[in-house]
Write a protein that binds this DNA or RNA. Structure first.
Length: 195
DNA sequence: TGCGAGATTACG
DNA sequence: GTAATCTCGCAA
């Protein structure tokens, strides 16, 4: 099976187009840890009150306003890292939050990173902060170029197509923009967040 | 089932 | 001060 990296054209569309296309792609992180993307959420800018980009650029969200195909990693709740894929074009806020993965390789390292709370494979990456912890993604990787894999993080297509009928639901954890159905996941995937 | 806390960031 | 793209442990 040949795997090919996603190119700039893939990421240069709007977040709502990129998000469902990311389902079933493979995220590759440092140390050979990889997982299949099974749940994502789209975020935009001035028209999306739930987005970090809603009120314009800040030091923290600068990557989200940058060129497509980069990794936007931010710290939240004083505790957790979350990883997003930047979409569209430089100057426009657009990103896709990676919410859950099915672990593929490097499971030993993932269990070590997640600690004793992870008892089963589906405890490793079934949430946005869980997957960053399991894969060793933190602020040092903010701004990574996924197209050139300049920091060993990239996304590849291993030949598995996105689901023909992805589940489309409301985004999780928002108070602003909570009415937008911009969450996409693989139907019946055991690794989606929230059991 | 509900609730508090926790390594930060941002706005009022 | 308070809310934020969250998770976990513990009380009830």
């Amino acid at each position: 099976m040949t795997s090919r990296k996603l190119d700039r054209d893939f990421y240069a569309r709007g977040a709502l187009e990129v998000a469902p296309e990311l389902l079933n792609k493979v995220l590759m992180a440092p140390d050979g840890r990889t997982g299949r993307i099974v749940e994502v959420e789209a975020y935009r800018g001035a028209d999306d009150p739930g987005s970090h980009g809603f009120r314009g650029p800040t030091r923290r969200n600068a990557t989200m306003f940058g060129p497509p195909g980069h990794l936007y990693v931010y710290f939240t709740y004083g505790m957790h890292w979350c990883a997003n894929v930047v979409a569209e074009t430089a100057g426009v806020a657009a990103a896709v939050l990676l919410r859950a993965l099915t672990p593929l390789d490097g499971l030993d390292a993932m269990y070590a990173a997640r600690g004793p709370v992870a008892r089963r494979d589906r405890d490793l990456c079934s949430g946005p902060a869980k997957l960053t912890q399991a894969l060793g993604i933190d602020g040092a990787l903010d701004g990574s170029n996924l197209i050139t894999a300049d920091r060993s993080v990239t996304i590849v297509d291993d030949g598995t197509p996105p689901p023909p009928d992805p589940a489309v639901t409301l985004r999780i954890g928002l108070t602003n923009g909570a009415d937008l159905p911009w969450r996409f996941h693989v139907p019946d995937a055991p690794d989606v967040s929230r059991r």
